[in-house]
Simulated scan of single mutants.
Amino acid sequence: MLNVRKSQDRGVASFGWLRSQHTFSFGHYFDPAHMGVGPLRVINEDRVAPGRGFDPHSHQNMEIISYVLDGALEHKDSMGNGSVLRYGDVQRMSAGTGVTHSEYNGSKTEPVHFLQIWVIPSEAGGAPGYEEKHFDAADKRGKLRLIASRDGREGSVSLRQDAAIYATILDGADAVSHPLPPGRQAYVQVARGSVTVNGCALQAGDAVQVTDEAVVGLSAAKDAEVLLFDLPL
């Protein structure tokens, strides 16, 4: 079964310096029909103006993943971490018992475009943690590259949840597939371009929840970059 979430139906927050599109309920946007999928709680597509950003704020009991699409995302946190993330970088921050962080556009001239993803951990508490890794475009082109997993396998960042996130870049005749065993579901988010998922045509910003299917197939893409979430039901 496919449950499509079109880009134009997402919640929108616009503050001049920030334009954010919310796949699921977040902040002032609330829709009881879109509260997340399994432990996947947030996918925000954020565009931040040069030199602006999110002042220090706190989180608890959440796995927070940043996936940079364009520009420079500057991060600082109460654990002492500080870095500037660029395209291909994936950051995971485990909020655990509590962490404070800030996120700013690291450029004074160019906007930054990124996806912020929240996954509910399997257990509350624990010490906060931080990790970041770089995934070259070549590693994602024409294949599903694991970028986050419970055990950090295959060079992915680790998550405190039985979930996996894959990234892929597809174009033309490229096609990839991912099996869905019983008890699992998938959520496919199109970051850019267009792609067909199990026969359903999607554009940039669109997403689809896939349940009761043995396989998730991605094909007929045009300049597409896609995230695939493998999640418990």
Rank of each mutant, 00 (worst) to 15 (best):
Asp55Ser: 14
Pro56Thr: 15
Ala13His: 15
Asp223Arg: 12
Ile165Glu: 11
Gln91His: 01
Asn81Gln: 12
Arg184Ala: 14
His134Arg: 14
Arg145Met: 07
Trp17Cys: 04
Ile43Lys: 04
Lys140Ser: 15
Asp223Ser: 09
Trp17Tyr: 04
Leu231Ile: 13
Arg192Gln: 10
Leu202Arg: 06
His101Thr: 05
Ala214Thr: 12
Val190Glu: 10
Leu18Tyr: 13
Asp77Ile: 01
Leu159Asn: 00
Ala201Val: 06
Gly106Asp: 14
Asp31Gly: 01
Gln91Ala: 01
Pro179Val: 12
His75Phe: 03
Asn61Met: 11
Phe15Trp: 07
Pro121Tyr: 03
Val48Trp: 02
Leu227Asp: 11
Leu202Ser: 05
Arg92Ser: 00
Arg141Pro: 10
His101Leu: 09
Gln91Glu: 02
Ala138Ser: 15
Leu69Ile: 02
Glu213His: 12
Ile64Leu: 09
Val12Phe: 10
Val215Ile: 07
Tyr29His: 04
Asn44Gln: 11
Thr168Ile: 13
Ser66Asp: 11
Ser177Tyr: 06
Tyr187Trp: 10
Val68Lys: 04
Glu132Ile: 09
Ser122Met: 12
Lys108Glu: 12
Ser219Asn: 05
Gly96Cys: 00
Arg145His: 15
Ser94Ile: 00
Leu231Ser: 08
Ser149Pro: 12
Ser219His: 10
Asp89Tyr: 02
Phe26Asp: 00
Val48His: 04
His101Trp: 06
Ile165Asp: 06
Ala33Pro: 03
Phe135Cys: 15
Glu154Lys: 03
Glu74Gln: 13
Arg150Met: 00
Phe54Trp: 15
Asp55Trp: 13
Asp230Gln: 06
Leu228Ile: 08
Ser20Leu: 01
Lys222Ile: 14
Tyr104Val: 07
Ala95Gln: 00
Val226Ala: 13
Asp174Gly: 10
Asn81Arg: 04
Arg153Lys: 07
Ala127Pro: 14
Thr168His: 11
Val37Trp: 03
Ala173His: 07
Pro32Ala: 14
Ala220Glu: 04
Glu63Ala: 00
Phe135Gln: 11
Pro232His: 05
Asp230Glu: 09
Val37Asn: 14
Gly16Trp: 07
Leu233Tyr: 10
Glu103Met: 08
Leu69Cys: 02
Pro182Ile: 11
Val210His: 01
Asp151Phe: 08
Phe229Leu: 12
Asp230Leu: 15
His75Ser: 02
Phe135Asn: 07
